[in-house]
Design a protein around this nucleic acid. Structure first.
Lengths: 350, 350
DNA sequence: TTGAAAGCGCTAACAG
DNA sequence: CTGTTAGCGCTTTCAA
């Protein structure tokens, strides 16, 4: 940077102003400096930038509906890992754990965070017009990131999570490939108004016509994210119908559903497909009750929002897109334990 | 750190010596300082450390057998991305592209790099005793990382790549799940002495007994990593045998094999499973000729070795293990385009 | 509109 | 064995 300043015949301060478009630079000088930067291919040293910019640290707030689904424990690991990582730079994180993912809880949690003078906010999206308006009002003053479920029409910086419709199609293809006899597919969702789950069902339905035999889909059964409820529902279903050839759990309750299927003795006969890599789901995968489960990189859903806000606040760097889709991560018994290096933990950044 | 020094009644220099075990500190003082560090939970600010330690930059050498398999183009993207990332800190990278992955080429390429005064070395492993001895002699003086294929008994810092045996088992399960009629499985490998490929075949063989019908495996056919050769081999095979129910390409040549299968008109009838996400493989996935392909995070195989050596050289941080396994990444038509965020590009580190 | 100077937290070279 | 000091590259006052 000294070098650039020397070449341009100005001071480092002026170069800095140009790099960051702070204005107050004579246009011709600005142009000259930009030219020189381009020619020399100069990039600021991020370590120095961070050292300087983060000397006062900053504060992020994050909402986590950790208490209604063990899936969020993995998300939380990502959050904790990012906190460990970034606290070294003076980043502070306040995590608010929610009982349920309702607008009411979300509003009050956000208000609490705003009172703590945060510099950035991370929330799972709840797709109502009021919430969008509220988020937009916050996003006017600080960066906001959504994760797991999006508010696509809001002014959030970006979304991090799965493409649920496509995940459903993926499940559908797996089903078509592995189904052995005609019958019905039974989808289970938590509630009717959770977009992620209904999209997963829609996705599967849309490819069912590719099956090599007659397969029809029943209306979705509801689990309210509860394993007990899922158990009951599946238990009753398997007693009354003998033509079930696939159980497809698009939301929570996958463990209860698998338990019921296992107890029915038809675990090796009925194809079961579900989501996420809960510890008990992995057991069911290994015992053959669950044929496929589809992961969505929960660790990254916790880690990346923080990393992205860090980049934004420390360097002014925007994320590479508005939608950062996590993988549609097909798991069977044999690759259940190979998470790959996508969790970043064990990596590697300053 | 000033704070620590003040509490211990010493200078920052002494604290630094203790933190990094540089010795030359009176044991009692050392103990006191360590105690204080533990109590206060002090962690050095990595931005400052990097700023200081990297003031002279450093130089990494990396070998890439880019010219015999398009797979390595993805690896190269990872390398380039890391180079862009880390060159900001003054890291220099010399990439040597190999024509073939032979010991001869490898030796001469490494020698060239050593003459350029590198501070760290990254190589795909070639598992011969001589190569191990040679790598060990280098590893005595600088950190060495293996990727894609390992030298498990060498003194390399760590390995980054797939667990090939387990990947083979995964392929086997997919086959057992989706096979529709009895017949033979035909494995294709490049050469007999490429461990990665033979392990993938072994892995599949070991789970074949789970198939719901009679399936036997033929001896492996050889492709020499060539698509033309793979085409010929598969073409001839399909003409002479009508009982082929699965083609399993464990090495290179997956595109040629798929072309031959497609041309035979039996693409929808024979299950084909292969590795990697080459552009043409994705086409074959979408047309239904290839049923499954298994990815191995090539981008990370290029990116991570550099990131790991950066961490090691800049901060003295060792990787989280000797074996960093990339994912066993099952792909079908529907999730072919969803790579997830594991590529880090578009992330997020200082 | 610009320059000068202080300093972020750490490391390394040198002096003692 | 320990302290002092200069300075890594950048940002941010403050003064001009």
């Amino acid at each position: 940077m000294n070098e650039i300043a020397r070449l341009a015949g100005v001071s480092r301060g002026t170069v800095d102003r140009v790099i960051h478009n702070r204005g107050n630079v004579k246009p011709e000088i600005q142009a000259r400096i930009q030219q020189i930067i381009k020619e020399t291919g100069f990039t600021p040293n991020p370590a120095a930038t961070a050292l300087r910019r983060l000397s006062n640290g900053f504060h992020l707030g994050i909402l986590l509906p950790s208490l209604h689904n063990p899936f969020y424990l993995d998300v939380k690991e990502g959050i904790c890992s990012a906190e460990t990582q970034y606290s070294k730079y003076g980043v502070n994180i306040t995590l608010v754990e929610l009982q349920e993912l309702t607008p009411q809880e979300q509003y009050s949690a956000i208000d609490r965070l705003l009172n703590q003078d945060i510099d950035g906010l991370i929330v799972p999206g709840i797709d109502t017009p009021e919430m969008i308006a509220y988020i937009d009002s916050i996003a006017a003053g600080m960066p906001v990131v959504t994760y797991n479920s999006d508010l696509p029409n809001s002014k959030r910086l970006c979304f991090i999570g799965q493409h649920h419709l496509q995940a459903g199609r993926t499940a559908g293809n797996l089903l078509c490939n592995s189904i052995r006899r005609p019958g019905v597919v039974v989808p289970l969702i938590s509630y009717e108004n959770i977009l992620a789950h209904t999209q997963r069902v829609e996705g599967l339905r849309s490819v069912l016509h590719n099956a090599p035999m007659e397969v029809t889909m029943l209306p979705a059964l509801h689990t309210a994210e509860s394993d007990e409820q899922a158990y009951q529902v599946v238990h009753k279903l398997l007693q009354t119908r003998k033509d079930v050839s696939c159980i497809y759990v698009a939301g929570g309750g996958q463990v209860g559903a698998a338990d019921a299927l296992a107890d029915s003795g038809r675990g090796q006969d009925v194809v079961m497909i579900c989501y996420d890599l809960l510890p008990r789901t992995i057991e069911h995968l290994k015992s053959g009750v669950v044929n496929f489960t589809i992961g969505q990189q929960p660790f990254l859903q916790g880690y990346l929002p923080i990393a992205i806000l860090f980049d934004y606040l420390a360097f002014g760097k925007r994320p590479n897109g508005k939608f950062l889709y996590t993988s549609i991560d097909i798991r069977i018994r044999e690759n259940a334990d190979f998470d790959g290096l996508s969790t970043i933990s064990g990596t590697v950044q300053i």
